[in-house]
C-alpha cells in the first residue's frame, strides 16, 4: 500500500490506537480509561478501513463502541461503592515483564518471518462475500455462535437475578 493517503492515514491511526491503548493502561480514572478505550477501538476501526475491510470496520464500531464499551460503563456504574481507580496490583512488574516479552516475541516473529505476501489489491466489497461465506461454508459455526450468544444472554440474566426474584411479570 503505497499511496500517500493510506500511508498518512495509517500512521495517524496507528499513533492514535497505540497512544490511546497505552493511556488506557496508564490512566488512573476508570471512566477515563473506558473513554480512551473507545478512542482506541475507533482507531482500530480506522486501521481496518486502510486494510479495505469496510464491513469489519463498521462492525467494530457497532459492537465494540456501541455495545462492549457501554457494557463496561454499566459494570462501572452498577458497582457504585467499588473503587473508581484503575491502579495496578502486586502483579505489576511480572505482568509488565510478561507483556513486554510476549509483544517483543510477536514483533520479532513478525519481522523475522518472510510472509507469503500476495500482490492483489484490497477487497472491493466484503459484506456480500462475508454473508455468502457465513451462510454457506461457515453455516454451522454461525449457528453455534448464535446459540452461544443466546446462552450468554440467558446466563447473564440468571446471574444478576436477585435471589427470590418474583416469578413472571410484576
Amino acid at each position: 500500500m503505497e499511496d500517500t493517503g493510506t500511508v498518512v492515514a495509517f500512521w495517524i491511526l496507528a499513533a492514535l490506537t497505540v497512544g490511546a491503548a497505552l493511556s488506557v493502561a496508564a490512566v488512573r480514572n476508570l471512566i477515563h480509561s473506558v473513554v480512551l478505550l473507545i478512542v482506541s477501538f475507533a482507531g482500530v476501526a480506522g486501521l481496518y478501513i486502510t486494510l479495505s475491510a469496510d464491513f469489519i470496520a463498521v462492525v467494530q464500531i457497532l459492537i465494540y463502541i456501541g455495545a462492549i464499551a457501554i457494557l463496561l460503563i454499566f459494570a462501572i456504574v452498577l458497582t457504585p461503592r467499588a473503587g473508581r481507580l484503575n491502579q495496578e496490583g502486586f502483579m505489576l512488574l511480572p505482568a509488565l515483564a510478561l507483556a513486554v516479552l510476549v509483544a517483543g516475541t510477536m514483533i520479532f516473529v513478525a519481522f523475522d518471518t518472510s510472509w507469503a505476501i500476495s500482490e492483489r489489491d484490497g477487497f472491493e466489497e466484503t459484506a456480500t462475500a462475508i454473508g455468502d461465506l457465513l451462510l454457506d461454508k461457515y453455516a454451522l459455526p454461525f449457528e453455534i455462535a448464535s446459540v452461544l450468544l443466546l446462552s450468554a444472554i440467558i446466563g447473564a440474566i440468571l446471574l444478576v437475578r436477585p435471589e427470590g426474584a418474583e416469578e413472571g411479570p410484576e
Partner: peptide, 16 residues
Amino acid sequence: NVGVLFLIAVAGIMTP
C-alpha cells in the same frame, strides 16, 4: 458499500 450499517454504527457513538 456498508452505508446502512455505517449509519447505525455511527449513531451508536451517541450513547457513550
